[in-house]
Design a binder for these strands. Structure first.
Lengths: 142, 142
DNA sequence: GTACACTCCGTACCATACTACAGAGTCAAG
DNA sequence: CTTGACTCTGTAGTATGGTACGGAGTGTAC
């Protein structure tokens, strides 16, 4: 068995059947071959593709961005150079996200620490911790 | 000058005026004091609060989750212990996101590398790289 | 050979997170 | 003391990313 029905793909990828069709319409997964009856026949790889989409969404990527990520491959339409450039741009995006997440994590760790020490905690500690190095702007003049 | 109009807050936080009001309605920022005219008077901290909301959204947090993050503070309603527990849970969420992002970054770095070496590149390299350790499920049986 | 779960397509509906008015009042620079 | 930018409330509309039918055909296990 090399192929799966839409229902199986959906169950394994932990999404609804409608979502699979939706992703097809949106160009996130390829239109699969069909049986004579019209039933879609998916290759097993579709499951990991949909899982990837799910994860990327949880990381704040839009479907448009995910489409771009998934299209980072060399084919008749894209040269090596082109793909490399696009991949490098995505790496920068990801590094920004990583840094913001790290800051958020540190803020929470500090919060937990000060909570354990029963030290007085400021009004909104997570916010204050995030402020150091938020986006290079330190001060706001009215 | 310790306070700002809604327009200034919006400009500094790089969102629309309507968005500031929307966040107020949604309980993400406090209802500010008003002038006699009814004009809102925001403390400067509101700007970083809104910036935080923006960043957290870009990291895939929903407004509901962001509300929870911002409420991680000790006050009359929340004990130290309670806050610590919630913060620890959020740290785990964040670590999952960090790991997924790291995997995605590595996949892209490998893609760039293989592109530079002019080596043959697989159909969808980012996907393949992400598959090692996606969510503990390695194999799909049909 | 018939239940019953599954699939098809199309359309409509939903939640989230804004965004854009309308109509009226306010502020401040010249 | 006016003019133009700003603010107010309320309501309506939009984009994204699904989710849920309805009505009809298909697959398969007993």
């Amino acid at each position: 068995m090399e192929s799966m029905t839409i229902g199986k793909v959906a169950r394994f990828a932990e999404v609804g059947v409608e979502t699979v069709r939706f992703y097809e319409r949106e160009g996130l997964i390829a239109e699969p071959p069909r049986r004579e009856s019209g039933y879609r026949q998916y290759p097993v790889e579709t499951v990991s593709r949909i899982r990837f989409i799910k994860h990327a969404k949880e990381l704040g990527f839009t479907l448009k961005e995910i489409r771009e990520l998934l299209s980072l491959q060399i084919d008749s339409e894209a040269t090596c150079d082109d793909v490399r450039k696009r991949a490098e741009a995505k790496i920068l995006d990801i590094e920004e996200k990583l840094q913001a997440l790290e800051r958020m994590k540190m803020a929470l760790i500090n919060l937990v620490k000060s909570c354990r020490g029963r030290a007085p905690v400021s009004e909104c500690p997570i916010l204050e911790a995030m402020e150091d190095g938020n986006d290079g702007i330190r001060r706001v003049d009215i």
